[in-house]
Amino acid sequence: MPIIDDEGRLFGTVNIIDALVVLFVLAVVVAGVALLTGGGSSDETPTRTVVVDVGQQPGYVIDAIEEGSVETSDIVAVENKAIASGGGNDRLRLTVTLAVTENADGLPTFAEDRLYVGRQVQLDLGTTIVSGTVIEMR
């Protein structure tokens, strides 16, 4: 049995033109539903990468901070851990990715307060908690 017979029927039962029209209408309906419902949800949390100067810290605190993903709700990851030398003082600087929200003005907030350079933040890194000053935002 041929797929399309002499009369243009698909498998001898459905007219090929009718089948194409039904498929087209179905595609339009699916596209319309996707357009009206947003096409899918985005569950991604907005993030902001910042550099935090946490000051001088004992070696055991520095050793407890690991680069990589963090299992807390406010901090996504520690991107970099560096010792900054200058003026005779060694200071620990952390580059961290924070989970943020936006306030009514569209500005990022972290831990319910606006995030800005100069703000004091407390970072729960899972294995340790440190406090410092935001010195750079990316």
Rank of each mutant, 00 (worst) to 15 (best):
S69M: 04
V96A: 03
Y60M: 07
P46T: 07
L98R: 01
T95G: 03
T101I: 05
S73E: 14
T45P: 00
A64R: 01
V50S: 05
L92N: 01
G59T: 01
T95Q: 11
I62E: 09
L98E: 01
T101H: 04
T97S: 15
V70I: 14
A99E: 01
A84Y: 04
S41K: 12
A84N: 08
S41C: 00
I62L: 07
E79S: 15
I65T: 01
V76Q: 15
V61F: 05
R93S: 01
E79H: 11
V70T: 03
V54I: 15
P46F: 13
V50I: 09
A82Q: 15
T95S: 12
A64W: 03
V54R: 02
G59F: 11
D43A: 15
V100G: 05
G86W: 10
D90N: 14
V51I: 14
A77S: 15
V52S: 04
V52L: 08
Y60A: 03
L92G: 03
V51T: 14
S85H: 13
L98N: 01
L98V: 02
V100M: 05
A64G: 00
T47P: 06
N103C: 12
I75A: 13
G40V: 11
S73G: 04
V50Y: 04
Q56M: 03
G68Q: 01
S73D: 15
E44C: 05
N103T: 12
T45R: 14
L94N: 04
G87P: 02
A82M: 09
G88M: 07
D90M: 09
D53S: 03
V54S: 02
S69Q: 14
S41F: 11
T49C: 03
S73K: 14
P58Q: 07
R93Q: 10
I65V: 12
D74H: 10
T47I: 03
Q57P: 13
V70R: 00
D90H: 06
T49L: 07
N103G: 13
I65E: 09
R91C: 02
Q57S: 02
R48Q: 13
G68L: 02
Q56R: 14
E71Y: 07
V54K: 06
A84P: 03
S73I: 12
S41H: 13
P58N: 06
G40H: 06
T45C: 10
E44Q: 13
N80T: 13
P46N: 12
A99D: 00
R93C: 00
G68C: 03
G39P: 09
T97D: 04
I75F: 08
E44F: 05
L94I: 12
R48G: 05
V54Y: 03
S73T: 06
T72Q: 10
I83K: 00
R93D: 00
T101K: 05
T72H: 03
G55L: 06
A99R: 15
V52C: 08
V78D: 08
V100D: 09
S42M: 07
A84M: 14
D53H: 02
E102V: 11
A99M: 02
N103Y: 09
G39C: 08
T47L: 02
D43C: 08
T49Q: 08
V76F: 10
G68H: 00
L98H: 00
R48W: 04
R48F: 06
T45Q: 07
E44Y: 09
V78H: 11
G88I: 12
A84D: 14
A82T: 14
G55N: 09
V76A: 15
G40Y: 07
T101Q: 13
I65F: 08
T101A: 09
V70P: 00
Y60T: 12
N89L: 11
V52Q: 05
